[in-house]
Design a protein around this nucleic acid. Structure first.
Length: 387
RNA sequence: GGACAGGUGGCCGAGCGGUUAAUGGCAGCAGACUGUAAAUCUGCCGCUCCUUGGAGCUACGGAGGUUCGAAUCCUCCCCUGUCCA
C-alpha cells in the first residue's frame, strides 16, 4: 500500500504532515469546513479556495437522499458535480445514526432511516454506505459506524462499539472488492498526487470509557485502514471528557497514519487537539454559528446581533486579514443580520472559516518551526459575555 | 347629511361579563449552537418594588352608567374606514 500520509515535522505530540489524496495534497493539521449537502452553506467554492480550504466534508446520507447517488455518478462524481478540484471527504451517514434518533432503527444488518425530507424509508448498511461513497468519489471515505449516544453505560457503549467494529470489517471488505468503481480515473485528474485511489478511514468508538476506546482503537487498527477517526465525541459530554477520550484513543493509533477527530470544535479546542496529535478535524460550528450571528475573533466571540454593535464602525477583528474584516464594519454586519439578508450568512461564514483556517495554518507553521509549545492556547476572554 | 363596520399593549391582530397584564404573529432584547432534520431553537418582552415567589400601580379611543365583578353590556361624545346622497 502506497503511503498516503507523510509527516514533515513534529513538536511534542503535534505533527505537521501532508495527506496525499487523489485530487490534491492536504496539509495537516487541517480543519475541514462542513459542506453536508455538497455546499458549505452560504459559501461558494471559489471563496473556499481563496480562504485556503484544502479539504471539505460532505455527507453521504444527505446526498443519497438528494440528488441521489445515480445523479452524482452520472455527472462524474461529487468533485465535478460541485465544481471542487481539491480534496473531499464524505462522512458515511454514521452521524445520522445518532442525530436522527427519532427517525431510525438500528439492527445488525444496518440502519433503517426515515427521510427527514419526506418521511420515506431507506436502509443504510456498511456495504451500501461504502458503495454510495465510492459512487460519490470523495478522496477520503469513512466507515459506516454507529455514533454512540451520550450517556452510554459500559454495557451499552461496548455493544455499540462491537457493532461498529463488525460494520468496519464489512466496510473494508466491500471497499476492497469495489474500489475500482470510483467515478474518476486518476489519469484524468488535473493534479496528480501519489494516491491513486480513495482512502478509507476507520472510526473508533467506545463512548466515554477509556478501556473501550483503547480496545476499539486496537481492533480497528487490526482491520487496517488508511487513517483512523475518533468518533462519538462532542455528543453532549463535558469538555474534559472529550479531551480525555481523545488522549486515550490517540495513544493506541499508529503514529505514522492520519488521525481524524470528528465533529470538533471551537477555535480553542482545535488548537488543543492538534497539540495532542490530531491531524484532521471538521466542525459545523464556524458556519452554523456564523449563520446565527456568532463570530470568532482574536479577542473572543462576538454576537453580532447585539444592540451594542449597532453603531460600531470598527471591523469585526482588527487582527484578521479576511475580506470581511478588511471592508465591513460591525454595524453593517449587524444590520445585515438583523435584516435577515443572505449576505449576512455569507460574510459571517467567510470570516469564521477564515479564522479557523488561519488558526490551523498558524498551528502548522509553528509546528514546523518547532515552537508550538509557545503557541497561544487561545483561551481568550469572551468579548461579548455579560452585559 | 345618512347607512354600515371598526377603534386592544411599539406594530398587526384575537378575546366579547369573572380563570385577562390580556392568545398569536411581527419587531425588540438576551442566550444556545461542536462527523448540519438548524437562515434553527430557547428565554424575556406595561411600570415600580422586594429574594425565588410575589406585592403594588397603570392599562383595551373618551366620559358616564349597569353589575359583587367590564376590554367584553348600556348611553352620549370623539376618531377611522367603506358605501349611499
Amino acid at each position: 500500500m502506497t503511503p498516503s500520509f507523510q509527516i514533515e515535522a513534529r513538536c511534542g505530540a503535534a505533527r505537521a504532515g501532508t495527506l496525499l489524496t487523489a485530487h490534491a495534497p492536504v496539509h495537516t493539521p487541517v480543519f475541514m469546513p462542513v459542506g453536508t449537502a455538497g455546499t458549505v452553506k452560504g459559501v461558494p467554492q471559489e471563496t473556499l479556495e481563496e480562504l485556503g480550504a484544502e479539504l471539505l466534508l460532505a455527507n453521504t446520507y444527505h446526498l443519497y437522499l438528494r440528488p441521489g447517488m445515480e445523479t452524482v455518478r452520472r455527472l462524474g462524481g461529487l468533485h465535478r458535480f460541485m465544481g471542487w478540484e481539491r480534496a473531499l471527504l464524505t462522512d458515511s451517514g454514521g452521524f445520522q445514526v445518532f442525530s436522527l434518533n427519532e427517525l431510525r432503527k438500528v439492527s445488525e444488518e444496518g440502519v433503517e432511516f426515515r427521510s427527514h425530507l419526506d418521511g420515506s424509508s431507506h436502509v443504510f448498511t456498511p456495504e451500501s454506505a461504502t458503495g454510495a461513497q465510492i459512487a460519490l468519489g470523495a478522496d477520503v471515505i469513512m466507515a459506516f459506524d454507529e455514533c454512540t449516544e451520550h450517556p452510554a453505560d459500559q454495557k451499552r457503549a461496548r455493544e455499540s462499539m462491537e457493532l461498529t467494529l463488525r460494520w468496519a470489517g464489512r466496510c473494508k471488505r466491500y471497499f476492497e472488492e469495489h474500489k475500482e468503481e470510483v467515478p474518476w480515473k486518476t489519469s484524468d485528474l488535473r493534479r496528480q498526487t501519489s494516491a491513486k485511489r480513495q482512502l478509507l478511514f476507520g472510526i473508533v468508538q467506545g463512548g466515554m470509557h477509556a478501556e473501550l476506546r483503547r480496545e476499539s482503537a486496537q481492533r480497528t487498527v487490526e482491520l487496517g485502514f488508511d487513517g483512523y477517526a475518533i468518533g462519538g465525541l462532542s455528543v453532549g459530554e463535558p469538555r474534559h471528557l472529550t479531551r480525555e477520550m481523545v488522549a486515550a484513543t490517540l495513544e493506541h493509533l499508529p503514529a505514522d497514519q492520519p488521525r481524524y477527530l470528528m465533529g470538533v470544535g471551537t477555535p480553542e479546542e482545535i488548537v488543543e487537539y492538534a497539540r495532542l496529535g490530531v491531524d484532521m478535524m471538521d466542525c459545523v460550528l464556524p458556519t452554523r454559528a456564523a449563520r446565527h450571528g456568532l463570530l470568532y475573533t482574536s479577542e473572543g466571540r462576538i454576537s453580532i446581533k447585539q444592540a451594542r454593535y449597532a453603531q460600531d464602525e470598527s471591523p469585526l477583528d482588527r487582527r484578521c486579514g479576511c475580506r470581511v474584516c478588511a471592508r465591513y464594519s460591525r454595524a453593517y454586519l449587524r444590520h445585515l443580520y438583523a435584516s435577515n439578508e443572505a449576505l449576512a450568512g455569507l460574510l459571517n461564514s467567510l470570516h469564521n472559516l477564515a479564522y479557523y483556517l488561519d488558526t490551523m495554518r498558524a498551528v502548522r507553521h509553528s509546528i514546523e518551526l518547532g515552537d508550538f509549545a509557545g503557541f497561544p492556547s487561545g483561551v481568550r476572554s469572551p468579548h461579548a459575555s455579560g452585559r
